[in-house]
Amino acid sequence: MATVKFPSSCNERAIFDFCSEVESHAGKEKVLIDFSSMGRIEPFVMVYVAKHIRDFNRTNKHTTVSCSGYINKEYAANMAFFRAFGLKHGREPNCKDGTERFVPYTILRTQTIVDEAIKGGDLAQDIIENRSENLAKILSRETTGNLVDALTYSIREIMRNVLEHSESRSIEYCAQFWPSYNKVEIAIIDNGIGLKQSLSANPYIQVECDSDAIQQALMPAISSKNFKGAKIDKNNPWHNSGFGLYMISRICRLGGSFLLCSGDHGISLNEQGKQHIDLGHQLKGTAVRLVLNTSKLTKLSEMLATFRDEGYEVAKEIKGVGMYKASAASQMLSKDFKKNR
Protein backbone atom coordinates (compact mmCIF):
# COMPACT_ATOMS: atom_id res chain seq x y z
CA MET A 1 0.00 0.00 0.00
CA ALA A 2 1.31 3.45 -0.95
CA THR A 3 1.36 5.97 1.92
CA VAL A 4 1.24 9.74 1.48
CA LYS A 5 1.90 11.93 4.51
CA PHE A 6 0.01 15.20 4.84
CA PRO A 7 2.53 18.02 5.46
CA SER A 8 2.89 19.72 8.82
CA SER A 9 3.04 23.14 7.16
CA CYS A 10 0.47 25.18 5.25
CA ASN A 11 3.25 26.32 2.94
CA GLU A 12 1.77 26.33 -0.56
CA ARG A 13 4.74 24.47 -2.04
CA ALA A 14 4.31 21.66 0.50
CA ILE A 15 0.59 21.45 -0.26
CA PHE A 16 1.08 21.33 -4.02
CA ASP A 17 3.76 18.67 -3.62
CA PHE A 18 1.40 16.63 -1.44
CA CYS A 19 -1.28 16.75 -4.15
CA SER A 20 1.27 15.77 -6.79
CA GLU A 21 2.36 12.81 -4.67
CA VAL A 22 -1.25 11.65 -4.31
CA GLU A 23 -1.62 11.94 -8.08
CA SER A 24 1.53 9.87 -8.65
CA HIS A 25 -0.24 6.86 -7.16
CA ALA A 26 -3.06 6.88 -9.72
CA GLY A 27 -3.99 3.35 -10.71
CA LYS A 28 -2.60 1.68 -7.60
CA GLU A 29 -4.83 -0.69 -5.67
CA LYS A 30 -4.62 1.10 -2.32
CA VAL A 31 -3.45 4.52 -1.12
CA LEU A 32 -3.24 5.60 2.53
CA ILE A 33 -3.25 9.30 3.40
CA ASP A 34 -1.72 9.90 6.83
CA PHE A 35 -2.91 13.12 8.51
CA SER A 36 -1.02 12.59 11.78
CA SER A 37 1.50 15.38 10.97
CA MET A 38 -1.21 17.94 10.20
CA GLY A 39 -0.62 21.14 12.15
CA ARG A 40 -2.21 24.51 11.48
CA ILE A 41 -4.49 24.29 8.46
CA GLU A 42 -5.96 27.29 6.64
CA PRO A 43 -8.92 27.79 4.28
CA PHE A 44 -7.06 27.54 0.97
CA VAL A 45 -5.38 24.30 1.98
CA MET A 46 -8.76 22.82 2.89
CA VAL A 47 -10.58 23.65 -0.34
CA TYR A 48 -7.61 22.78 -2.55
CA VAL A 49 -6.77 19.45 -0.93
CA ALA A 50 -10.39 18.34 -0.46
CA LYS A 51 -11.13 18.94 -4.14
CA HIS A 52 -7.92 17.20 -5.20
CA ILE A 53 -8.63 14.06 -3.17
CA ARG A 54 -12.24 14.04 -4.35
CA ASP A 55 -11.19 14.38 -7.98
CA PHE A 56 -8.60 11.63 -7.48
CA ASN A 57 -11.30 9.32 -6.14
CA ARG A 58 -13.56 10.07 -9.11
CA THR A 59 -10.91 9.39 -11.74
CA ASN A 60 -9.41 6.35 -9.98
CA LYS A 61 -12.47 4.27 -9.18
CA HIS A 62 -10.41 1.09 -8.79
CA THR A 63 -8.09 2.67 -6.21
CA THR A 64 -9.14 2.44 -2.57
CA VAL A 65 -8.16 5.58 -0.64
CA SER A 66 -8.10 5.30 3.14
CA CYS A 67 -7.02 7.79 5.82
CA SER A 68 -5.34 7.70 9.22
CA GLY A 69 -4.22 10.16 11.88
CA TYR A 70 -7.24 12.44 11.57
CA ILE A 71 -9.18 11.70 14.77
CA ASN A 72 -7.75 14.55 16.87
CA LYS A 73 -7.72 17.17 14.11
CA GLU A 74 -10.64 19.08 15.61
CA TYR A 75 -10.34 22.38 13.73
CA ALA A 76 -10.26 20.69 10.32
CA ALA A 77 -13.17 18.45 11.36
CA ASN A 78 -15.16 21.46 12.57
CA MET A 79 -14.51 23.24 9.25
CA ALA A 80 -15.99 20.19 7.40
CA PHE A 81 -12.68 19.50 5.65
CA PHE A 82 -12.76 15.72 5.96
CA ARG A 83 -16.38 15.28 4.90
CA ALA A 84 -15.71 17.52 1.88
CA PHE A 85 -13.69 14.72 0.25
CA GLY A 86 -15.82 11.84 1.52
CA LEU A 87 -14.21 10.85 4.84
CA LYS A 88 -16.93 10.28 7.44
CA HIS A 89 -15.47 12.42 10.20
CA GLY A 90 -16.49 15.84 11.52
CA ARG A 91 -19.13 18.18 10.22
CA GLU A 92 -20.77 18.01 6.82
CA PRO A 93 -20.17 20.82 4.30
CA ASN A 94 -22.96 23.41 4.33
CA CYS A 95 -23.60 22.59 8.01
CA LYS A 96 -24.02 26.29 8.84
CA ASP A 97 -22.96 29.72 7.63
CA GLY A 98 -20.43 30.02 10.43
CA THR A 99 -19.83 31.82 13.71
CA GLU A 100 -16.83 33.03 15.68
CA ARG A 101 -15.26 34.67 12.62
CA PHE A 102 -15.10 31.60 10.39
CA VAL A 103 -17.07 30.14 7.51
CA PRO A 104 -16.79 26.33 7.26
CA TYR A 105 -16.42 24.41 4.01
CA THR A 106 -19.44 25.22 1.86
CA ILE A 107 -20.46 23.85 -1.53
CA LEU A 108 -22.87 26.21 -3.26
CA ARG A 109 -24.57 25.00 -6.43
CA THR A 110 -24.60 27.64 -9.15
CA GLN A 111 -28.12 26.50 -10.05
CA THR A 112 -29.20 27.47 -6.52
CA ILE A 113 -28.10 31.03 -7.24
CA VAL A 114 -30.03 31.05 -10.52
CA ASP A 115 -33.16 29.60 -8.85
CA GLU A 116 -33.05 32.19 -6.06
CA ALA A 117 -32.73 34.97 -8.63
CA ILE A 118 -35.71 33.71 -10.64
CA LYS A 119 -37.82 33.29 -7.53
CA GLY A 120 -37.10 36.81 -6.30
CA GLY A 121 -37.15 38.52 -9.69
CA ASP A 122 -33.51 39.51 -9.25
CA LEU A 123 -30.30 39.10 -11.21
CA ALA A 124 -28.00 36.25 -10.22
CA GLN A 125 -25.29 38.82 -9.47
CA ASP A 126 -27.58 40.47 -6.91
CA ILE A 127 -27.98 37.11 -5.15
CA ILE A 128 -24.21 36.68 -5.12
CA GLU A 129 -23.74 40.12 -3.59
CA ASN A 130 -26.30 39.39 -0.87
CA ARG A 131 -24.59 36.11 -0.02
CA SER A 132 -21.17 37.78 -0.08
CA GLU A 133 -22.32 40.51 2.29
CA ASN A 134 -23.73 37.91 4.67
CA LEU A 135 -20.40 36.04 4.67
CA ALA A 136 -18.53 39.31 5.22
CA LYS A 137 -20.65 40.12 8.28
CA ILE A 138 -20.12 36.63 9.72
CA LEU A 139 -16.36 36.88 9.31
CA SER A 140 -15.99 40.42 10.63
CA ARG A 141 -18.74 40.24 13.28
CA GLU A 142 -19.64 43.73 12.09
CA THR A 143 -22.58 45.08 10.08
CA THR A 144 -20.86 47.99 8.35
CA GLY A 145 -17.40 49.42 7.81
CA ASN A 146 -14.31 49.13 5.64
CA LEU A 147 -13.75 45.45 6.40
CA VAL A 148 -17.33 44.46 5.57
CA ASP A 149 -17.20 46.39 2.30
CA ALA A 150 -13.79 45.00 1.26
CA LEU A 151 -14.82 41.42 2.06
CA THR A 152 -18.18 41.77 0.33
CA TYR A 153 -16.57 43.16 -2.81
CA SER A 154 -13.78 40.57 -2.93
CA ILE A 155 -16.00 37.54 -2.35
CA ARG A 156 -18.58 38.83 -4.79
CA GLU A 157 -16.15 39.39 -7.65
CA ILE A 158 -14.63 35.90 -7.35
CA MET A 159 -18.06 34.26 -7.18
CA ARG A 160 -19.19 36.32 -10.17
CA ASN A 161 -16.25 35.00 -12.15
CA VAL A 162 -17.25 31.43 -11.35
CA LEU A 163 -20.86 32.02 -12.37
CA GLU A 164 -20.12 34.05 -15.50
CA HIS A 165 -17.03 32.32 -16.92
CA SER A 166 -16.24 28.91 -15.46
CA GLU A 167 -19.25 26.77 -16.45
CA SER A 168 -18.81 25.14 -13.03
CA ARG A 169 -21.82 23.57 -11.37
CA SER A 170 -20.65 24.66 -7.93
CA ILE A 171 -18.67 27.22 -5.95
CA GLU A 172 -16.73 25.83 -2.99
CA TYR A 173 -15.38 28.10 -0.28
CA CYS A 174 -14.36 28.57 3.33
CA ALA A 175 -12.83 31.44 5.27
CA GLN A 176 -11.32 32.54 8.58
CA PHE A 177 -10.63 35.89 10.28
CA TRP A 178 -7.81 36.17 12.84
CA PRO A 179 -8.32 39.63 14.46
CA SER A 180 -5.15 39.39 16.55
CA TYR A 181 -3.12 39.04 13.34
CA ASN A 182 -5.18 41.57 11.32
CA LYS A 183 -5.63 38.78 8.80
CA VAL A 184 -8.57 37.41 6.81
CA GLU A 185 -8.21 34.47 4.45
CA ILE A 186 -10.88 33.52 1.93
CA ALA A 187 -10.51 30.51 -0.35
CA ILE A 188 -12.76 29.82 -3.34
CA ILE A 189 -12.45 26.97 -5.83
CA ASP A 190 -14.56 25.72 -8.74
CA ASN A 191 -14.82 22.67 -10.97
CA GLY A 192 -15.09 24.54 -14.23
CA ILE A 193 -13.28 24.80 -17.54
CA GLY A 194 -10.30 26.77 -16.21
CA LEU A 195 -8.88 30.13 -17.21
CA LYS A 196 -7.11 28.97 -20.36
CA GLN A 197 -10.25 27.62 -22.00
CA SER A 198 -12.38 30.49 -20.73
CA LEU A 199 -10.11 33.22 -22.12
CA SER A 200 -9.82 31.41 -25.46
CA ALA A 201 -13.32 32.77 -26.17
CA ASN A 202 -11.70 36.19 -26.67
CA PRO A 203 -10.18 36.17 -30.20
CA TYR A 204 -7.85 39.05 -29.32
CA ILE A 205 -6.04 37.19 -26.55
CA GLN A 206 -3.18 34.79 -27.25
CA VAL A 207 -3.09 32.12 -24.58
CA GLU A 208 -0.69 29.24 -25.16
CA CYS A 209 -0.47 27.84 -21.65
CA ASP A 210 -1.98 28.13 -18.17
CA SER A 211 0.69 30.62 -17.11
CA ASP A 212 -0.32 32.92 -19.98
CA ALA A 213 -3.98 32.59 -19.04
CA ILE A 214 -3.44 33.51 -15.38
CA GLN A 215 -1.27 36.50 -16.27
CA GLN A 216 -3.87 37.73 -18.75
CA ALA A 217 -6.71 37.23 -16.24
CA LEU A 218 -4.92 39.43 -13.71
CA MET A 219 -4.57 42.32 -16.15
CA PRO A 220 -7.20 45.09 -16.24
CA ALA A 221 -9.74 45.09 -19.08
CA ILE A 222 -9.01 41.50 -20.06
CA SER A 223 -12.12 39.34 -20.26
CA SER A 224 -13.51 36.34 -22.08
CA LYS A 225 -16.73 38.29 -22.71
CA ASN A 226 -15.70 41.90 -23.28
CA PHE A 227 -13.88 42.50 -26.56
CA LYS A 228 -14.37 44.24 -29.90
CA GLY A 229 -17.39 42.73 -31.62
CA ALA A 230 -18.89 41.15 -28.49
CA LYS A 231 -22.46 42.09 -27.59
CA ILE A 232 -22.35 44.00 -24.31
CA ASP A 233 -25.11 45.90 -22.52
CA LYS A 234 -23.09 48.75 -21.06
CA ASN A 235 -26.19 50.06 -19.30
CA ASN A 236 -26.12 46.94 -17.16
CA PRO A 237 -23.87 47.76 -14.16
CA TRP A 238 -23.02 44.06 -13.90
CA HIS A 239 -21.63 43.84 -17.44
CA ASN A 240 -18.24 42.16 -17.54
CA SER A 241 -15.33 44.55 -17.99
CA GLY A 242 -12.36 42.40 -16.97
CA PHE A 243 -11.44 44.56 -13.98
CA GLY A 244 -12.65 42.34 -11.12
CA LEU A 245 -9.59 40.13 -10.54
CA TYR A 246 -7.26 43.06 -11.08
CA MET A 247 -9.07 45.14 -8.44
CA ILE A 248 -9.15 42.30 -5.89
CA SER A 249 -5.47 41.50 -6.36
CA ARG A 250 -4.64 45.15 -5.68
CA ILE A 251 -6.66 45.14 -2.45
CA CYS A 252 -4.97 41.94 -1.28
CA ARG A 253 -1.50 43.30 -2.00
CA LEU A 254 -2.02 46.01 0.64
CA GLY A 255 -0.06 44.00 3.16
CA GLY A 256 -1.77 40.72 2.25
CA SER A 257 -1.49 38.36 -0.71
CA PHE A 258 -3.38 36.93 -3.67
CA LEU A 259 -2.97 33.46 -5.19
CA LEU A 260 -4.60 32.32 -8.42
CA CYS A 261 -4.22 28.74 -9.72
CA SER A 262 -5.59 27.02 -12.81
CA GLY A 263 -4.45 24.07 -14.88
CA ASP A 264 -0.82 23.31 -14.07
CA HIS A 265 0.19 26.78 -12.87
CA GLY A 266 -0.27 29.36 -10.14
CA ILE A 267 0.71 32.98 -9.60
CA SER A 268 1.14 34.51 -6.16
CA LEU A 269 1.10 38.29 -5.65
CA ASN A 270 2.07 40.33 -2.60
CA GLU A 271 3.80 43.61 -1.73
CA GLN A 272 7.16 42.10 -2.69
CA GLY A 273 6.05 41.19 -6.20
CA LYS A 274 4.97 38.19 -8.26
CA GLN A 275 5.91 34.52 -8.02
CA HIS A 276 5.20 31.86 -10.63
CA ILE A 277 4.39 28.40 -9.27
CA ASP A 278 4.54 25.10 -11.16
CA LEU A 279 1.82 23.06 -9.43
CA GLY A 280 3.26 19.73 -10.52
CA HIS A 281 -0.21 18.39 -11.32
CA GLN A 282 -3.38 19.42 -13.13
CA LEU A 283 -6.04 21.44 -11.33
CA LYS A 284 -9.41 21.10 -13.04
CA GLY A 285 -10.99 24.50 -12.61
CA THR A 286 -9.67 27.56 -10.81
CA ALA A 287 -8.63 28.17 -7.20
CA VAL A 288 -8.24 31.54 -5.49
CA ARG A 289 -6.81 32.53 -2.13
CA LEU A 290 -7.33 36.06 -0.86
CA VAL A 291 -5.46 37.23 2.23
CA LEU A 292 -6.37 40.71 3.44
CA ASN A 293 -4.43 42.76 5.97
CA THR A 294 -7.29 44.42 7.85
CA SER A 295 -5.03 47.14 9.27
CA LYS A 296 -4.31 48.44 5.77
CA LEU A 297 -7.91 48.73 4.55
CA THR A 298 -9.37 52.17 3.96
CA LYS A 299 -12.69 53.28 2.49
CA LEU A 300 -13.48 50.87 -0.35
CA SER A 301 -14.64 53.53 -2.81
CA GLU A 302 -11.35 55.41 -2.41
CA MET A 303 -9.21 52.29 -2.80
CA LEU A 304 -11.10 51.16 -5.91
CA ALA A 305 -11.03 54.62 -7.49
CA THR A 306 -7.23 54.66 -7.20
CA PHE A 307 -6.85 51.13 -8.56
CA ARG A 308 -9.34 51.82 -11.36
CA ASP A 309 -7.45 54.89 -12.59
CA GLU A 310 -4.15 53.03 -12.49
CA GLY A 311 -5.82 50.09 -14.22
CA TYR A 312 -7.02 52.34 -17.04
CA GLU A 313 -3.45 53.44 -17.71
CA VAL A 314 -2.26 49.83 -17.78
CA ALA A 315 -5.15 48.89 -20.09
CA LYS A 316 -4.24 51.64 -22.53
CA GLU A 317 -0.69 50.34 -22.72
CA ILE A 318 -1.96 46.81 -23.33
CA LYS A 319 -4.63 47.62 -25.87
CA GLY A 320 -3.36 50.78 -27.45
CA VAL A 321 -4.72 54.29 -27.23
CA GLY A 322 -8.22 54.50 -25.79
CA MET A 323 -10.23 54.43 -22.60
CA TYR A 324 -11.32 51.09 -21.18
CA LYS A 325 -14.00 51.58 -18.56
CA ALA A 326 -14.54 49.21 -15.67
CA SER A 327 -18.17 48.26 -15.18
CA ALA A 328 -20.03 49.95 -12.34
CA ALA A 329 -19.98 46.71 -10.37
CA SER A 330 -16.20 46.46 -10.63
CA GLN A 331 -15.84 49.96 -9.21
CA MET A 332 -18.13 49.74 -6.18
CA LEU A 333 -20.72 47.77 -4.24
CA SER A 334 -24.19 47.49 -5.72
CA LYS A 335 -25.67 49.59 -2.89
CA ASP A 336 -23.55 52.44 -4.27
CA PHE A 337 -24.09 52.05 -8.01
CA LYS A 338 -27.84 51.49 -7.56
CA LYS A 339 -28.05 55.02 -6.13
CA ASN A 340 -26.79 56.33 -9.47
CA ARG A 341 -29.29 54.54 -11.70
Rank of each mutant, 00 (worst) to 15 (best):
A14G: 02
I15K: 06
F18C: 04
G27L: 14
K28T: 15
K30I: 15
K30S: 15
V31K: 07
F35I: 01
S37M: 00
S37I: 00
M38R: 01
G39Q: 01
I41D: 05
V49L: 13
V49H: 09
V49S: 10
H52N: 12
H52T: 13
I53Q: 03
I53V: 10
R54N: 14
D55N: 14
R58I: 08
S68C: 08
G69L: 01
I71L: 12
E74N: 13
A76D: 04
F81P: 03
A84W: 05
H89S: 14
E92C: 14
D97F: 15
F102N: 11
Q111L: 10
E116Q: 10
I127M: 08
E129T: 11
N130G: 09
L135W: 10
L151D: 02
T152S: 14
T152W: 09
N161G: 14
E164Q: 10
I171H: 05
Y173W: 09
C174D: 09
C174T: 13
Q176M: 08
N182K: 12
N182F: 11
V184S: 00
D190S: 07
D190Q: 09
D190V: 07
A201T: 03
P203L: 12
Q206K: 15
V207L: 00
C209T: 04
Q215R: 05
P220E: 08
A230Q: 06
K231D: 11
N236T: 05
N240T: 05
S241H: 01
M247D: 10
G255M: 04
F258I: 08
L259E: 03
L260T: 04
D264M: 11
I267P: 01
N270W: 05
E271P: 04
I277Q: 06
L279T: 03
G280K: 01
L283N: 09
R289F: 01
S295G: 02
S295R: 06
S295A: 09
S301N: 13
E302W: 00
E313I: 08
A315K: 02
E317A: 00
G322D: 06
G322E: 07
A326Q: 07
A326V: 08
S330G: 15
Q331A: 14
K335L: 08
D336Q: 13
K339D: 07
